[in-house]
Deep mutational scan, measured.
Amino acid sequence: IINNLKLIREKKKISQSELAALLEVSRQTINGIEKNKYNPSLQLALKIAYYLNTPLEDIFQW
Rank of each mutant, 00 (worst) to 15 (best):
K37F: 15
L44P: 01
S26V: 02
I33E: 00
A21E: 12
S15W: 04
L19I: 04
L23W: 02
E18T: 11
K35V: 11
R9S: 02
I2T: 10
A21C: 11
K13N: 15
N4R: 09
Q16A: 09
W62K: 09
K6I: 05
Y38K: 12
A45G: 07
L44V: 06
K47Q: 09
S26F: 05
Q28K: 14
W62Q: 12
A49C: 06
L19R: 00
Y38N: 08
R9W: 04
N31P: 02
E10Y: 05
W62H: 10
K13P: 02
L46I: 11
K37M: 15
I48T: 02
K37T: 15
R9Q: 04
N4P: 03
Y50I: 07
L46E: 13
S17V: 12
F60D: 01
S26W: 03
K6F: 05
Y38E: 09
A49S: 12
Y51T: 13
K47G: 06
S26Y: 03
N39C: 14
A20S: 07
K35G: 11
I30P: 01
L19D: 00
L56G: 02
K35E: 15
V25R: 02
L42T: 07
I59P: 00
Q28T: 12
L23E: 00
G32V: 10
I59M: 05
E34N: 03
A49N: 01
I48N: 00
K6P: 04
K6N: 04
L42H: 09
I1R: 11
N39Q: 15
L56V: 14
F60W: 10
E57Y: 09
E57I: 07
L52V: 04
K13V: 05
L5P: 01
K37S: 12
E34S: 04
E34W: 02
Y51F: 13
L42Q: 08
N53F: 05
N31Q: 13
A49P: 01
Q43W: 10
L7H: 13
I59S: 00
T54Q: 05
L56D: 03
A49K: 02
T54K: 03
G32A: 15
I2D: 08
A21P: 01
K6S: 07
I48A: 04
I14L: 13
K47W: 04
L22R: 08
Q28L: 10
G32H: 14
R9D: 03
L52D: 00
R27H: 12
P40N: 01
L19W: 02
K37G: 07
L42R: 12
L19P: 00
S41H: 06
F60H: 02
E57D: 12
Q28D: 15
K6M: 08
I2F: 11
Q43I: 14
T29D: 06
I59G: 01
L5R: 00
S26R: 06
Y51A: 13
S41T: 12
I14F: 08
L22V: 12
E57H: 09
S26P: 15
K13L: 08
